[in-house]
Design a protein around this nucleic acid. Structure first.
Lengths: 178, 178
DNA sequence: TTTGTCAATTGACATCATGTCAAGTAACGA
DNA sequence: TCGTTACTTGACATGATGTCAATTGACAAA
């Protein structure tokens, strides 16, 4: 996990991980039969120690739809950099490895439910833009908040983490809230 | 090119390409010394036969800033599915191969200039939202229109190509135009 | 004290894709 | 006829994942 986070997922081989863990490469395979499995276990572990589910669910306590949208974006936006290294490694395997692809899809579906709930809250408040159906709005929010977009805006465009969150909230409001 | 476009870039090996071209794998290496080079050459060729530059530049003729934004999104959005297979293959190599990474960055910078020009036109018209500096607005438009976002919305969310373009125009206007 | 189990080790090996190298061949033009 | 050019065949190196077999050392139960 340390290695993946630190090196942003790039060039981390099974041997490197074993070395850092102080065991042989083969011993690693006794615990995780494939690289994908190791990566998946790492994300699960990472979520566990970071208390991810709870932190993401905290936006439920918001009093209004727009506030809920804000807090969800804040929670998710804070979460991304913590998992970025592992996510990136998984993302890279996604296109060739079926297990990795499914694991990633699974994580992203979970995050989509958060988006869906936020949109639902907006709708219940009567604040959802009439331009979009709840499904479409969810699609848009989900895409807006993708890890790739975070990557592009912060790493390539040089936005600070604070900028990212602030601008993302503003953007989501402009698009989705009436 | 056919193979890449058709198979969406997935699992296309040098041997497969050679086979389809009716030459030996080694002969392929006489023409393109690396896979990355072949992919890069393919995108250039693809752009050439598709008259990409001209089509993307056509938005210059728009009479107003917002109209220019629309036509640019239309042109770019129409372009993406045509290059998607090759783009995807290049994208997959980006994280491990330096040449591929640079080539992709290069293409994306070119596309960024289009975004920049559209934002500039908005600003000149006094239509650019005061919430964003031109740079920020360019970052946002550039990210919004990324190939990954197109991929997510059309392939994963099931939006039709027409939906994508229509909604993207609408979204960009809501975010960027005052 | 013996025996069995468990986790791990060492080292060899299969696989698969990219990329390299060497020797040979068929066509074509001067 | 000679030389050049594009290509062929086939062998090989590399680097990563993943597999297999034989071995070791510790610990626990009989």
């Amino acid at each position: 996990m340390d290695l993946l986070v630190e090196s942003r997922g790039k060039g981390v081989r099974m041997g490197d991980i074993a070395k850092l863990a102080g065991i042989s490469r083969q011993a690693l395979y006794l615990h995780f039969t494939t690289r994908a499995e190791l990566l998946i276990a790492t994300t699960i572990y990472l979520d566990e120690i970071n208390n991810t589910d709870e932190r993401l669910a905290a936006s439920r306590n918001a009093r209004s739809g727009p506030e809920r949208l804000d807090t969800y974006i804040e929670a998710w936006g804070t979460y991304i950099p913590e998992i970025y290294g592992v996510a990136k490694a998984l993302l890279a395997m996604k296109d060739t490895d079926d297990a990795a692809s499914k694991a990633w899809q699974n994580r992203m579906q979970a995050m989509r439910h958060g988006c869906e709930a936020a949109i639902e809250a907006l709708k219940d408040d009567g604040n959802l833009s009439p331009d979009y159906s709840p499904d479409e709005a969810t699609d848009i929010l989900w895409t807006l908040l993708s890890v790739r977009n975070w990557e592009q805006l912060t790493i390539e465009c040089g936005w600070s983490q604070a900028d990212y969150i602030r601008k993302m909230k503003q953007l989501a409001r402009r698009v989705l809230v009436v």
